[in-house]
Design a protein around this nucleic acid. Sequence first.
DNA 1: GTTCTAGAAC
DNA 2: GTTCTAGAAC
Length: 719
Amino acid sequence: MEVDDEIIKPKVDGEEKDNRKPLVVILVGAPGSGKSTFCDHVMRVSTRPWVRVCQDTIGNGKAGTKAQCLAISSTSLKDGKSILIDRCNLDKEQRADFIKLKESYQVDVHAVVLDLPAKLCISRCVNRTGHEGNLQGGKAAAVVNRMLQKKELPKLSEGFTRITFCQNENDVQEAINTYGALSSSDVLPSGIFGEKKKDTKVQLGIMKFLKRVDAPTKVASDKTIPEPSNETTKESHHVNECQEQSGTNTLDTVPTLAFPSISTADFQFNIEKASEIIVETVEEFVNKIGNGRLVLVDLSHGSKILSLVKSKAAKKNIDPTKFFTFVGDITKLRSGGGLHCNVIANAANWRLKPGGGGVNAAIFDAAGQDLDTATKKRAGSLAPGKAIAVPLPSTSPLFSKEGVTHVIHVLGPNMNPKRPNCLKDDYNTGCKVLREAYSSLFENFASIVRTQVKSSDHEFSNGDQKVRREDGAHVNEKNKKFKGFIEVPESNNPYSVDGKQDATSSGKTGGSVNKDWGSWAQALHKIAMHPEKHQNGVIEILDDVVVLNDVYPKAQKHLLVVARAEGLDRLADVTQEHLPILRTMHDVGVKWARTFLEENQSLVFRLGYHSAPSMRQLHLHVISQDFDSKHLKNKKHWNSFNSPFFRDSVDVIQEISEEGKPTINDDEKFMSMELRCNRCKSAHPNIPKLKSHITICKSPFPANLLENERLLKKVDNAC
DNA sequence: GTTCTAGAAC
DNA sequence: GTTCTAGAAC
């Protein structure tokens, strides 16, 4: 909450009573968010007469109906008492009837949103005993999750005069202080309070899960575009907003086009005219790009084009969450500015050639040879006013480092006599061509959004942004990181084939790059090389693979199918030449899964690889989806099998055959993702709670797992 | 990969 | 007080 939360003391001119107007405060929050506590605290300290209207207790101490709540509310307001509506009120419809009290009794209606992390709410519900709502124990998580999925944050347009958002316990305490200090005649300022904090310590996954609408959206829905209050922070409002939306990570599903101002640099197009055209074209397209966003990017903080565009966009009331300006290097938006833009526009030259300086040189430079090659495949030249979208190959650093999937080349009109096709001062043609260029650019982007939407719900079910093709960059990072690992002398490993590993791992000289395994990580490698010497756990020895029971199974059935090829340490080492061995591993895994299914038809199996295994030697996990095991002890155990870190064998094989290498999701963030049930996707505060939930959860598996034979179940009519 | 354990969280 | 997590050591 901000400093402007001050209570306005109305003037008291002898007739103080006239100013006494009751107030309706609608609390909004999941079970466990602290609504009842909020009421208790406010009522304990307040001098204003309050009535708490609690649906959980309204029926003689037992749960009642919404109608009863409304009846008590009316009587209390008639008596001149203010009311606290203590029920979840999570969606607009639930709140509507209480907001109507505004007209009937001429009162102000406020909302206090207890928007605390799901994890915290669940944890409180699970722990409390004897709560009035009787929502305790194991069911709590499921209920809270279900309710939060329906959550719709309140807006002023619903009829509220004031909305206070609380995202953490400090916010809640401040809101308690504010309302607790409210005497009968005090009035609070209207508007929205409690902007989302930049450093709110909420897990990213939870943020995503809460589907939080950003504070500026709320404001924008009722007011005009918020203007930055001081000159030095001109861009910061937008910068922060973007960082939060993208979370400086790849878990960002909002398709975003970053584009430079076309023609205003080297082509010397008039900036005033250009800004007009940008804003008009944006206005035309902003509603045609689905949930996509458009971002005008410029390198310099003092950019005139950005400030002109910004003020014109504000005047036109263009939604600031759909279109905004950003200061930064267009080739480093994610890594340097925390803004993930899956598509960037290039102010290209007519030959679509790299070099030449400016944005064009920077983009071609950052994207590497791949962009040049991909561009040439599409077109040899570009006419002024036209744009062409080029999908960026996964091998491009711009793809792996910045998450850019497409570059759209645009050619604007040229007003510079030193450059080709100069229009001299013909701004009639110039404006037409520039408008055409932006239209073509946005049209191309809209088309990318449409196709990406169609194919995107195949991923991890909570809607995480596809985290594809980070392999190159990450593997390199990893190698750097692990360089400090203690090298294990071959003499310590009685089963190794001396001297061969270094040469075979990647064919490079210089040793240490490949020696990134600790001594404890060699067990599988030893077994793969000499399975006959390790009979413990080994259940099948074939020419290409060894099958063994995992020593620390994380489920009722948990096998490892280990490749026997020397130098094939992990998924990152896999190339097209390994397709046969991967298929063998898969087939052997499936065979064993079917064997177990014969014994126990209730099992469900999943086959896959860890993106970054702890044990050396490529191994396929064949694991039953009950995760019923005393060895499953921590978050990493869970997330290594239940996040994008786990790569399904079928997908790995498909990716290698189609693209030559598999996607590797080895980012640490997958290990710290919140704990979610692998069936119903409900969130749980800790491992014990998750484990007790999964023993009872009977929900079907998420749709993405049911596709493409990612799960193996008992087939009734097997021929 | 696991075990151990300090200390955070409850 | 107990439970749980997370980092270091192996």
